[in-house]
Nucleic acid binder design. Structure first.
Lengths: 329, 329
DNA sequence: ATGCTATGTGATACCGGTACCATGCTCAGG
DNA sequence: CCTGAGCATGGTACCGGTATCACATAGCAT
């Protein structure tokens, strides 16, 4: 007890004893066991953070934001890479419960993640979803307005003359995919066009998926003149496929997507994108989960919807259109 | 005890009791407390991973590799972003000790990280350095051959005609900076040239640093014809500064660097780089630290040196040289 | 001298698991 | 019928902290 008092700087220890303890602490290089403290206090000081792919710059920037806020509040971050795999996600969630993480920030795999997350809900576990919502699960959420963003993107393509715009997206059980497709359809409708199912290709939202989907699109006759990719990685895969096919963006095929890749934009501002405030996803989510931890599980769930911006660069062909509008359409 | 036996599937419980316990576990949604287990077993099941910048693709890919290996071995990963800040790094290291992480993988800030790491050494804490070594600290290490890589890169620039090659690097207390500069100098020497101190600009190894350093280089008269950036982020900053200056890479200024940015290379294979096997840094480091945990602190420290490859693309101006070698030099 | 408070220190219990041992019961063998 | 083995179950202690309380000693007033 006396040692505990000294270490925690609590009053009620004689100066003499305090010095002796301090000397022993130094000599033995003693560091109090945080696990034991956690057991006593029922506070692990840990937040979970589950994302589908940490190497995707969208998520790595988001992670940085969340980690910074968490650390400043005295929390550690357990990072988990779900690889978009429901079973793995489930393991991670269970691990959070078992190790008594005090809160969880998660970019869920999709709507089916609900089964993985209900145990948390049941326990009133502080939980914040990022990027994607989960159908039927009511909890704190930080997302961008995907419908509006997608509509902007599609409208832009339409405005510069594109009529056959293919979409590379994920299955509909991912909320962002659903919403972005909805925005796309809404833009078409506003332009008096009908959405054609054959133009919508569903795949995994990574480079390989984008690549495969693009190959399929390039086989179509008549060939679409533009492609709308559901995120940055699918766009890169698509880009690769287009180049392998001997075509040039934007001359032969326009390409736009969600999520800017900042590093990439610095090197060459090429991709026309809808940019989301990525780091803010992380910082806001961390703040929400910390508030939830501090304030108890009560209170209605909060939905933060962030604005996203259309960044018109080269890959959409806007400049090409400006100089020779009749060239291709 | 009986509950413990049932949960751990230990024999010696009657089928009847076992069923009753299982029913109670289900009803109460009981999950054993991992913190308490950790206290008992003195095993936290946690690995620490400290990197200077998680949003740098080099590190985020490395993190993914490490996390995957750790998880498969049943370990959780505490991710820490040191921001290249020694004080912050110290905090993180102390936290690892306090919370009894079983091992630590760290890309240290620099040689001065030694003071932060000696407490670990003293405790025989399983420790693996990645990317950078720490002068005077003997422990497990995964790195690339920076000297050879830098020599390749500089030799290539020399071979296509460059003579005034500026270097943007970090202070010498970072091992990779030291070694890459050494490789550069060695290439110059082999070509019968002398290194000029005015061509070496030291800065922070991030985009802002690269930007500032490049601005300085662009003021020089005579202006260097090529720049060797110590890593990917400095190269991007340099690129930005070059463009802001109204110049074009590689026509007006060649640019090469360490570390490929894969996403970027997919979009447009532009930067000539020395590519390190990034993910392998992470997987190998995780394997080493797991072995160290399993095998005890004994045994000599192991140094893994990975090969790196020169990827000649456009930014070095090799193609330019090939078509009109006399154009600029 | 006696009583009272203030102060410093340590004993005890508990957080939630598990190792180890004790107990009680059943059943087979002598 | 008694003994001992074998099984099921629970008691106790401990991991390493901390909250709480008990107690010893000192200092002061009466």
């Amino acid at each position: 007890m006396t040692v505990s008092r000294v270490i925690n700087g609590v009053a009620g220890v004689s100066p003499e004893t305090r010095r002796r303890v301090e000397r022993a602490v130094t000599e033995l290089d003693f560091v109090p066991n945080g696990v034991a403290r956690g057991l006593m206090s029922s506070k692990s000081g840990t937040l979970g953070l589950i994302v589908p792919d940490i190497s995707n710059p969208f998520f790595s920037i988001l992670v940085r934001g969340a980690e910074t806020v968490a650390r400043r509040a005295g929390y550690r971050v357990l990072l988990c890479n779900s690889e978009g795999d429901l079973a793995l996600e489930k393991q991670y969630v269970q691990d959070m419960i078992a190790h008594r993480a005090e809160g969880l920030i998660i970019a869920p795999v999709g709507d089916r993640s609900k089964a993985n997350l209900v145990p948390l809900e049941r326990r009133k576990f502080p939980l914040v979803l990022i990027d994607r919502s989960v159908s039927g699960l009511e909890c704190d959420l930080v997302q961008a307005d995907s419908v509006a963003g997608a509509k902007m993107l599609a409208s832009h393509l339409l405005s510069i003359g594109h009529r056959r715009i293919a979409v590379i997206t994920e299955p509909d059980n991912v909320s962002t995919a659903r919403e972005r497709l909805q925005g796309y359809n809404s833009a078409l409708k506003a332009a008096g066009l009908k959405s054609s199912p054959s133009l919508i290709v569903r795949t995994t939202a990574d480079r390989a998926g984008g690549h495969a989907a693009m190959q399929q699109i390039l086989q179509q006759d008549p060939r679409p003149t533009a492609v709308f990719a559901v995120n940055n990685m699918t766009a890169l895969g698509a880009m690769q496929a287009i180049r392998e096919h001997g075509l040039v963006v934007p001359k032969d095929m326009a390409l736009v997507c969600f999520d800017d890749v900042e590093h990439l934009a610095v090197l060459s501002p090429f991709l026309t994108v809808v940019n989301q405030p990525t780091e803010m996803f992380g910082t806001l989510a961390a703040q929400l989960v910390l508030e939830r931890i501090a304030g108890g599980p009560a209170g209605p769930s909060r939905h933060v919807v962030l604005n996203s911006d259309l960044l018109v660069r080269e890959s959409c062909g806007a400049k090409l259109m400006a100089t020779s509008p009749a060239l291709r359409y």
